[in-house]
Design a protein around this nucleic acid. Structure first.
Lengths: 136, 136
DNA sequence: AAATAAGTCTACTTAATCAATAGACTATTA
DNA sequence: TAATAGTCTATTGATTAAGTAGACTTATTT
């Protein structure tokens, strides 16, 4: 299961994708429409900005907006940006890899099974983009 | 990512699968070989027993063992038994479903994408059994 | 140009859940 | 009855989620 933080990030990105090219969007607007605790959302959006996915404008008329077209960011990228591993276990994670304490990966049955599911998941998440998060 | 508890459960079940039919296996043996904190492992095995996957024997010569052939339990079943949802978000979970606060599932883009990944994952995890967790 | 309103940004605090540990208790076998 | 091994309860520590307070920045209005 994705963390709440990652789930909120995807929802917010979907909302911003729908408003792409229409100028800055208020945090409060996203929070209200997507039912995300506003202070939690602030930190998430800030992190996405620091990862060069979003840009922000301060002061009156400000807000957050996508830097690039929603089609240019895949769901796999978005999930990883906010710190969410996609694999079910660390020993098959591409971006958050950790070796198991107990096993030799060449012979580990669990490793093999989890590798397959990771590949199946990635195949989907690397094709879909933020544009697909737009409701309709 | 699966919780530590779920990961440990799968490793322990794999170990017991390899020893199926050979009588009770000590908690301490599993703990040592699979590098699982023994007290944490105790609670996990107990839970698996209460879910009718394992049986135990107390006293000297005691331990835990699989009730049925490893081939009869799928990885999907095993993961769910110890409380691990397989889906990435609650609104597409079969066994731990929760409705989103903000969206209409019929039109939600995120829901659609996550449904597809869940199906791809389940397709694999429902075919593989504990027997596939045996190293070799 | 000063005041004010409308925004984001930063730091800190609290609450909840997950992971790990400790120790007493019960059942079984030799 | 002594030793072994699972069972149960309680506590601690770590991480994640959420909430609070206030500083800082920009645009508008007068």
């Amino acid at each position: 299961m994705l963390s709440k933080k990652t789930q909120y990030a995807l929802k917010a990105l979907g909302y911003l994708a729908a408003k792409y090219g229409q100028g800055p969007v208020l945090i409060s607007e996203i929070s209200k429409n997507k039912k995300i605790p506003i202070k939690f959302l602030e930190t998430i959006l800030l992190e996405l900005k620091q990862n060069n996915v979003l840009e922000s404008k301060k002061g009156k008329g400000g807000g957050y907006y996508l830097i690039e077209s929603p089609k240019k960011t895949t769901l796999a990228q978005a999930i990883r940006l906010v710190g969410g591993p996609i694999a079910l276990v660390p020993c098959v994670s591409l971006n958050f890899y950790e070796k198991c304490a107990d096993c030799d990966e060449a012979t580990c049955g669990l490793n093999k099974a989890m590798l397959q599911t990771r590949d199946a998941t990635l195949k989907i998440l690397e094709k879909k983009t933020l544009a697909e998060l737009i409701d309709g």
